[in-house]
Amino acid sequence: MTWLTWRQFRTQAATLYLAVAAVAVVVLVTGPRLHDLAKSGANLFDNLTKSDQALFFAGVILVAAAPAIIGAFWGAPLVARELEHGTHRLVWNQSVTRTRWLATKLGLTTLGAAAAVGLLTWAVTWWSSPLDGTLSQSRGNLPGRLTPVSFAMRGLVPVGYAVFAVVLGATLGIILRRSLPAMAITLAVFAFVQVAVPLWVRPHLIAPATVTLTFSEKALDSISGSPSGGPDRIELNTANHGDWILTNRTVNAAGQATALPAWLGDCLPGPRQPAPSTPTTQQAPDITACLDRLNAEGYRQRIVYQPVDRFWPLQFAETGLFLVMSGLLGGLCFWWTRKRLS
């Protein structure tokens, strides 16, 4: 059975692994300069070229897209194509049970996908590691590796995604019995999962930490204005820049979330009428007085966040979650193949 799986699969496998090798070449050519720069202690961000930044985001997109593409192109046709061409009636009548047939096919494909995405992620993670979360005072920053932009494209999680995508594709192919719709739905479902997990699932994988801070200029991240003019939102930073901040809310003395006091707008300098919905960052010297008055009146900032040192625990938890989901879908695959297909 292994031979047949390999024989059916080798062209696709070769294509994918060649692509991974091509990525590896780019990483090896452009990566060492970044690592040297990081070691030299220079401000890395200010030394980045446009192409470095482009490559950074290309890496993010690549690792985000790879599982989806593999799931659609490997997983969905895995069984569906056999059903479409009727070859399942040939192969199921050799002296191999359907269960073993599916186990070998799905197992080897999943392994192949996991290994390819693992290698790809490893290369991209290494390339990006000096850049993750780099700060620059003047021009913004690159997202840290715990942020939703990067988290699922680093470390171990992409492997879990790849396994999930292949099994998802295979399941849909088995249920729909058609490659093309299965591919389309695999892509759609996987894209939804990629959006839904950081929004609703990942924050709760480990109970997030909460911290209540007093206002200070050092911790101040931004003050944004409302469309009507006055400031309506202050955001502070946690002590560690790499933390993933989930909520950033001002509370009153009683500890309840509240709107900012009306006087704050008069206290703060800056444009009285900022353009609607345009956030403004205030950096006037007398801002400290306003913040002190907020502290004195009992206002505090409550931040719910995942600390940066939880990167690996979160990685393991999310990978585990995806492996469990893959396992459940895999069970459905086997059940459906045994009971529902003919």
Partner: peptide, 22 residues
């Protein structure tokens, strides 16, 4: 089976090897 399904992109030799393996 009806319409004698075979793997279109496998050779005759591959089919015999398939049979031998399975």
């Amino acid at each position: 089976a009806q319409d004698t399904p075979t793997y279109a992109n496998l050779s005759i030799e591959d089919h015999l090897r398939l049979g031998a393996h399975l």
